[in-house]
């Protein structure tokens, strides 16, 4: 990556991701020879400031979830570094990593499969406290009560099992579990996309309240632009393993520069039929990350592609303060 794409670091920086890569081998045949690599995250760099929400948006398979999980070292990275308050997470010893885990939590998309069906939810919420030997039984019970209260559940819910709860309630349980260790940073991986429409707003509000009350920092992953805009301070747009645009929220929504961001925004169906805009309908399918297009990965679908696009990859460049774009049109 060129010099221009170094993210700025200052004292407010909580997380710094540097040239992060995660490649998955694709094997075939009886010998399980490696046939190629899926470059799920391919040289991604950005910073997240203390207390902010960085939204990460992109279509399915573009690498959002892998990025979130690699950052937390839930899957091992292929290359790159992730710093938490200046400490490289990838270089921690198992012991150091265990205590670091308290700071870093994740909320999953599917509130159904992420809970253990055979365990009362109270025990699942406080499991982390037991693993880290925090407090005695009595204290843990107090913490549990507080947590249930914070996420809008009742004391008596603690003894119940996951199947007794609705989708929205299960997501509240998942959030309580993530909060138990008083984390600093939470990856929210599509936390509302599996929920009923009328429940989504409840959970989005809850996440905002908790952020304020506990001074949390979020990486909020979603494919829904409405939810992303509602909750984020800054937004990163991902396409086939790369960040193609990153900007403060209002700037990105008012003035998207990357042709992919523009298409993504114009494709959002809006319930307000007065604001219908010109739709940009992209041709073709999302290409496979196994064999991504040469040069700019978006070029085969890009309505504005020109000479350099199929040949060389455009660098992520800061075109105005805080607004980063990877597109040859910017050169």
């Amino acid at each position: 990556m060129s010099q221009s794409s170094e993210p700025p670091i200052n004292e407010k920086t909580l997380i710094e991701v540097k040239n992060l890569k995660k490649y998955f081998p694709v094997k075939s045949g009886i010998l399980q020879r490696i046939r190629g690599w899926v470059k799920a995250v391919d040289d991604v760099s950005f910073v997240i400031e203390e207390g902010e929400t960085l939204g990460l948006v992109g279509e399915s398979g573009c690498g959002k979830t892998t990025l979130g999980r690699t950052m937390l070292r839930l899957v091992e990275s292929t290359a790159g570094k992730v710093f938490f308050r200046g400490l490289n997470i990838f270089e921690l010893s198992p012991q150091e990593l265990k205590s670091m885990r308290r700071n870093l939590q994740i909320i999953f998309q599917d509130p159904y499969s992420s809970l253990d069906p055979s365990l009362a939810i109270g025990e699942q919420i406080t499991e982390g406290l037991r693993i880290h030997s925090i407090g005695d039984r009595e204290e843990r019970r107090e913490v549990l009560k507080e947590l249930l209260h914070h996420v809008g559940l009742e004391d008596y819910h603690a003894k119940r099992y996951p199947h007794e709860f609705s989708g929205g309630q299960r997501q509240r349980i998942g959030i309580a579990r993530a909060l138990a260790l008083r984390p600093v940073f939470i990856v929210c991986d599509e936390p509302v996309s599996a929920l009923d429409v009328s429940i989504q707003a409840q959970i989005l509000n809850l996440l905002k309240d908790l952020q304020r009350d506990f001074n949390l920092t979020y990486l909020f992953i979603a494919h829904n632009m409405g939810a992303i805009e509602h909750i984020s301070d800054r937004v990163a747009v991902m396409y086939l393993g790369k960040i193609v645009e990153l900007a403060p929220r209002d700037q990105l929504f008012k003035n998207p520069f990357h042709p992919y961001t523009q298409a993504l925004m114009s494709a959002i169906p809006s319930a307000d039929h007065h604001r219908h805009k010109q739709r940009i309908i992209l041709a073709g399918d999302v290409p496979s990350p196994l064999d991504p297009p040469s040069g700019c990965r978006f070029h085969p679908r890009c309505p504005a592609a020109f000479k350099p696009c199929p040949i060389e990859e455009p660098p992520l460049k800061e075109i105005s303060p805080g607004h980063w774009v990877a597109c040859w049109l910017m050169e």
């Binding site: 509000n205 632009m225 805009e229």
Partner: peptide
């Protein structure tokens, strides 16, 4: 309750 692009509210009605 549905966030409308371009009209950010602090809290969503639920």
């Amino acid at each position: 309750s549905i966030p409308i692009p371009g009209e950010v509210k602090n809290r969503l009605p639920t």
